[in-house]
């Protein structure tokens, strides 16, 4: 099956910075994901939101990439959140216990309004 390389777009909102992810998160996504996260960190947001609504495949290497982002976020005192995960990947976040460390929202609106409340 053809791989769909990951595309990442960084959007800055008042309450947080969003990384829109599109494609597959696997070992090949490492460089793009890390660069995009470094770009997102540039503006010094308190919260970074990973928007998975365009992601249709994550393997275990991809989950490890997300965990290392969590480690980086923790090291710099930032909060990492997730939204737009399919039901299957919500379950994977539970199995890998990522969900214990990362708030998971059904969509971007819910994550943004939560962040706005927190900032207010």
């Amino acid at each position: 099956m053809a791989n769909e390389p990951l595309e990442v777009t960084v959007r800055r909102l008042p309450a947080l910075t969003v990384l829109d992810l599109e494609g597959e998160i696997n070992g090949l996504a490492e460089s793009r994901l890390n660069h995009a996260y470094a770009d997102a960190e540039g503006a010094g947001p308190r919260t970074v939101l990973l928007n998975f609504s365009g992601v249709d495949y994550i393997n275990s290497t991809g989950i490890a990439l997300i965990v290392s982002l969590l480690g980086r976020a923790r090291a710099s005192g930032r909060e990492l959140r997730a939204c737009g995960l399919s039901e299957h990947y919500v379950e994977i976040f539970n199995i890998t216990r990522l969900a214990d460390f990362m708030s998971v929202f059904p969509n971007e609106e819910a994550a943004v309004s939560e962040a706005a409340l927190g900032a207010g």
Binding site: S53, G54, Y57, I58, G84, H88, E91, I92, N94, I95
Partner: peptide, 23 residues
């Protein structure tokens, strides 16, 4: 064309059999 989230959710993910189940 990109599928909607609902369309994706209704399909069996291609990696479903690759993951351990929750225990």
């Amino acid at each position: 064309m990109t599928e909607s989230r609902e369309q994706r959710a209704s399909q069996i993910p291609r990696d479903a059999a690759n993951w351990a189940t929750q225990t």
